[in-house]
């Protein structure tokens, strides 16, 4: 067996969210597309975990599966030891208060025909026995918390810019005092100066309220800025997991290394060095269905990469799935030592 996270990661009882061998497939029979392929990851209480990958990596699908917006095909999702794998959002009852979301698109995520106050009080009045008066006070508190003026409550979303709408979306997520907020690319649609404001707001709220984040993003620098740990996804599979500084500073997996090398920096001289050092990997027209999903683009590819899916191996504080880091000589099934350093 491939080592399970319980063996690889220090098992603590403090996990807030446990995703275990999750698989999400669309379509039927031969036309099946597997968006999430055997993903295992955990988020501790108060921890910020970044989920990084390019389009089609399945990162948003994982978020939606956790939220109960997409059905899982197999595997298990547990939130505070409650199995929520096959419980859609509508049937989660009180649990929805603990598990909230901020979406990427600040334009589509607010109902244009409802005032900010109506949007924010909706979850308050539904779940908590709050009077209208209490809810109004709570809305004012929330607006203040996300840095919006009090008179924002009676306006419609159209009156706000993208950054302000994202603040409103964050306020809505905070309304029920959640423990975990899934942030699905919350700053990708924002301008640079607005992005910094929202990232700081998310960091402050986490510090003040002890929130945990599952932060989904494609920009490594953004994820590095906010997260403690990073999970790198490629075509639905986890390539590398580790502390944020480790993953962005000393990437182990060739895919992570390619991601890091491709992210441009705003320093011309440094960027020139990075450009000369990077190995250009062109995108293949077809994708192999066995072995390592990155094999078609990997500069270090060997025969075994196309035949066998690499095992997860613990290297230092990171866990990596790559044949460059063999857990035993070539045969992951008999390998026992997951602590072997390469």
């Amino acid at each position: 067996m491939t080592p399970t996270p319980e063996e690889v990661q220090p098992r603590t009882d403090a996990w807030l969210l446990e995703i275990d061998h999750l698989r999400v497939s669309y379509g039927r029979r031969r036309r099946t597309h597997t968006a999430v392929d055997d993903v295992t990851l955990n988020v501790g209480a108060g921890e910020a975990v970044g989920l990084v990958g390019e389009s089609g990596s399945g990162k948003s699908t994982i978020g939606r599966a956790v939220l109960g917006l997409t059905a899982s095909s197999s595997g298990r999702i547990r939130f505070e030891d409650t199995d929520i794998t096959s419980v859609p959002a509508e049937r989660r009852g009180a649990l929805t208060a603990d598990l909230q979301v901020v979406f990427q698109d600040p334009y589509g995520s607010l109902n244009p025909a409802r005032t900010i106050s109506q949007t924010l009080t909706e979850p308050l009045l539904t779940h908590r026995a709050m009077t209208a008066e209490q809810a109004r006070a709570r809305v004012q508190g929330l607006l203040d918390q996300v840095g919006l003026p009090a008179d924002a409550a009676n306006r419609y979303p159209a009156a706000f810019s993208g950054g302000q709408r994202q603040r409103i979306a964050i306020a809505r997520a905070l309304a029920s005092n959640p423990k975990l907020v899934i942030c699905d690319e919350p700053v990708s649609a924002l301008d640079l100066s607005t992005q910094a404001q929202i990232l700081n707001l998310l960091a402050d709220l986490r510090a003040d309220l002890g929130l945990a984040y599952l932060f989904i993003g494609h920009n490594l620098a953004v994820v590095r800025n906010l997260c403690d740990r990073v999970v790198v996804l490629y075509r639905g599979q986890v390539m590398e997991t580790g502390p944020a500084a480790q993953v962005t500073g000393h990437p182990l997996h060739p895919y992570t290394a390619a991601l890091v090398a491709a992210a441009p920096v705003a320093d011309v001289a440094a960027q020139r060095e990075r450009r000369l050092a990077r190995v250009t990997v062109t995108e293949p027209l077809t994708v192999a269905h066995s072995g390592c999903p990155f094999a078609g683009r990997c500069p270090h590819v060997e025969d075994i990469c196309r035949q066998q899916r690499p095992a997860r191996v613990k290297v230092g504080e990171s866990v990596v799935a790559c044949h460059l880091f063999p857990s035993g000589k070539g045969d992951s099934h008999t390998s026992g030592s997951v602590d072997e350093k390469v």
Partner: peptide
């Protein structure tokens, strides 16, 4: 398919609402 419907579902609003 609008995100605000997803947000409402995540808020745990009943189908009726």
């Amino acid at each position: 398919d609008e995100l605000f419907i997803d947000a409402a579902r995540v808020s745990g609003l009943p189908l009726r609402t």
